[in-house]
């Protein structure tokens, strides 16, 4: 177990591991999300109270769950980075922050879009909404702090400290609806009571579980990709980067100039690169 862990933590083997895992996770995540969204929009029945407005739940709840989960993940990675000085964990903190920030913003905005038709207001300053907003600022702090330093390691370790201190906010966000009288409703699925006595009909639950698990798979896929970038950027001079990154199929991206062809093209990779070319009309070139 430990040797496996240590092997994985070494940049080259992590890089190859991520290359193998990320396409599967991405495909799975997008598939689950597509089916879940279709189910949420067209198959699930309208709610007895909120009518069709409740369908925002299939976007809002996965985004909110991820916003909390990613911050906890950052804090755990930060603790590992600070205690064992593991480079991969440092990269993990930095790579997770922008993804977490985007999902926190999504949770806030979809929450507003849900609140207007149901509560009657886009925004109220109750405990859940305020603490989620604070969470967004914590993410922005980590991103800003990472960019403020020229040395990547110092930056990542400073971010790790911030992630550790900020994690105090996570239980406040989650339990705010229980601790305070709040306009926001309680947890539908992420609480003990809800497991004992389901609070949502199964015809409405399954799309939610699909989008929820799909979002997590998607997060892990893009997180691995960001981690790979982070690792390569730090080790740009190392031999393994030359051997396994530049020779690997992904180098096909730059093959147009160098005329070199990757040895074995993974089909999922190919399609991703195709999408990348399409999505790049005013891109980095």
């Amino acid at each position: 177990m430990w040797t496996w862990f240590h092997r994985l933590a070494s940049p080259p083997s992590f890089y190859r591991f991520a290359d193998r895992l990320a396409p599967w996770l991405l495909g799975l995540g997008l598939l689950l999300l597509a089916v879940g969204c279709y189910g949420g929009l067209f198959i699930a029945p309208a709610d007895y109270q909120q009518g069709d407005a409740f369908r925002v739940i299939y976007v809002h709840v996965p985004a909110a769950a991820l916003s909390l989960f990613v911050y906890v993940l950052m804090a755990v990675a930060g603790a590992i980075a600070l205690v064992w000085r593991m480079k991969l964990a440092e990269c993990a903190v930095v790579a997770a922050a922008p993804i977490g920030a985007s999902f926190t913003a999504l949770a806030l905005v979809t929450g507003m879009l849900w609140g207007k038709p149901t509560w009657g207001a886009y925004w109220v300053w109750d405990a859940r909404l305020t603490s989620e907003l604070v969470l967004l600022f914590l993410y922005l702090g980590v991103i800003g702090l990472n960019q403020a330093y020229s040395d990547a390691r110092t930056a990542a370790r400073a971010c790790a400290w911030l992630a550790l201190v900020g994690v105090v906010n996570v239980p406040i966000v989650h339990y705010s609806v229980q601790w305070w009288n709040s306009l926001h409703q309680g947890s539908t699925i992420l609480s003990l009571e809800a497991v004992r006595d389901p609070k949502i009909s199964s015809s409405m639950l399954w799309p939610l579980l699909l989008t929820l698990s799909g979002s997590f798979a998607f997060f892990f896929a893009v997180w691995l990709r960001r981690l790979q970038n982070e690792v390569v950027a730090r080790e740009r001079g190392a031999n393994w980067v030359r051997d396994c990154v530049l020779q690997a199929p992904l180098a096909a991206v730059s093959n147009e100039q160098s005329g070199m062809t990757g040895p074995e093209l993974d089909p999922s990779m190919q399609s991703r690169q195709g999408r990348q070319r399409h999505g790049e009309p005013r891109g980095a070139d």
Binding site: P45, A46, D47, Y48, Q49, Q50, F54, I57, T118, W119, G120, A121, V124, L183, Q185, G186, S187, T188, A194, K199, I200, S201, S203, M204
Partner: peptide, 18 residues
């Protein structure tokens, strides 16, 4: 001066609710 609706965490189709 302002009234907001507070819905709960239960979701179900109208038939079930009825």
């Amino acid at each position: 001066s302002q009234i907001l609706a507070k819905h709960d965490e239960n979701y179900m189709p109208p038939q079930v609710a009825a």
